[in-house]
Measured scan of single mutants.
Amino acid sequence: NTKMVRFKKGDSVGLRLAGGNDVGIFVAGIQEGTSAEQEGLQEGDQILKVNTQDFRGLVREDAVLYLLEIPKGEMVTILAQSRADVYRDILACGR
């Protein structure tokens, strides 16, 4: 149940992230009207890879910085997997 989305970065990627470290990086929110939303990313999706950067094992701050450093107008390719069950557990633990 993995999906790959590809879009051109606007002012931002339009994602709020949660998790990090051993639990993985998850989409915690999506800005309305962004390409990330239009391409089908959803809250609870685990981000496995962005462009050439493996997101598994990253701390959340490093994942956020990586997304911020992608220049506006560059193509962004995100490999994600729907993991809403794991995401709910992360929220319940306050991570």
Rank of each mutant, 00 (worst) to 15 (best):
Q46W: 02
Q38G: 13
I78A: 07
R6P: 00
S35Q: 13
F55R: 05
M75N: 08
V5N: 04
S35L: 12
G24W: 01
A63N: 09
N51H: 02
T52P: 02
I47T: 07
L68P: 06
S12A: 08
S82R: 11
V5C: 07
G94A: 11
G44L: 03
E32M: 06
K3W: 01
A84C: 11
G10V: 06
A63F: 06
T2W: 07
R95L: 15
I78D: 06
E32V: 08
Q53K: 14
R60S: 09
T77V: 06
G24L: 02
G57R: 08
M4P: 02
N21G: 15
E39Q: 14
D85M: 11
S35C: 12
K8E: 08
A63E: 00
I90N: 09
A36K: 05
Q53F: 06
Q42C: 12
A92D: 12
L79R: 08
A80Q: 05
I47F: 10
D54K: 00
E69N: 15
K9E: 07
Q42W: 01
P71Q: 00
D89I: 00
L67V: 03
V13Q: 03
F55Y: 10
K3C: 03
K9Y: 03
E43H: 06
G57M: 08
G73C: 06
C93G: 15
Q46R: 09
G19M: 02
I25N: 07
K3L: 01
V23A: 09
C93R: 13
Q46L: 11
I78W: 01
E74K: 08
T52N: 15
E39L: 13
A84S: 13
V27W: 06
G29R: 06
T52W: 02
R60D: 00
S35E: 15
L79K: 05
L15V: 13
G10R: 05
N21W: 13
S82Q: 09
G20V: 02
G19T: 04
G33C: 06
R88S: 11
A36C: 09
A18D: 05
Y66A: 09
L41F: 03
M75L: 09
A28H: 05
P71T: 02
L68K: 15
E39A: 15
D54N: 05
T77R: 04
L48P: 01
R60T: 14
D45T: 01
K72R: 11
E37K: 10
A18I: 15
L48Y: 11
T77H: 09
G33K: 07
D89E: 13
L48T: 04
G29Q: 09
R56N: 11
K3E: 01
S82W: 09
E32S: 14
R16T: 15
I78M: 08
R16W: 08
N21M: 14
R56C: 11
D89A: 09
T52C: 11
L67A: 04
Q46H: 07
Q53D: 01
V59I: 12
A36N: 04
M75T: 13
I30L: 09
L91C: 12
R88L: 10
R60M: 14
D85Q: 11
N1G: 06
T77W: 04
D62N: 00
D89S: 13
A84L: 15
N1Y: 13
L65G: 14
V13K: 05
N51W: 00
I70V: 04
G20I: 02
P71W: 03
D54G: 02
L41R: 02
G57Q: 11
L15Y: 04
G19H: 06
L67C: 04
Q53H: 06
A36S: 07
I47K: 01
A63V: 06
Q81T: 09
G44I: 05
A18L: 08
Q46S: 07
T34H: 15
G14K: 04
G40I: 11
K49P: 00
K72N: 08
V59K: 15
I25S: 03
I90Q: 13
N21Y: 11
M4Y: 11
F55N: 00
K72L: 07
G19E: 09
R16H: 11
A92S: 13
I47D: 00
V27H: 08
F55H: 00
A84N: 14
E61S: 08
C93W: 11
E43P: 10
D62G: 04
R56E: 10
E43Q: 08
T2Y: 15
E69L: 04
L67S: 04
N1L: 08
E43V: 15
Q53E: 08
Q53T: 08
G24Y: 00
S12I: 08
E74Y: 05
L68T: 15
E61M: 05
A28M: 09
L91N: 10
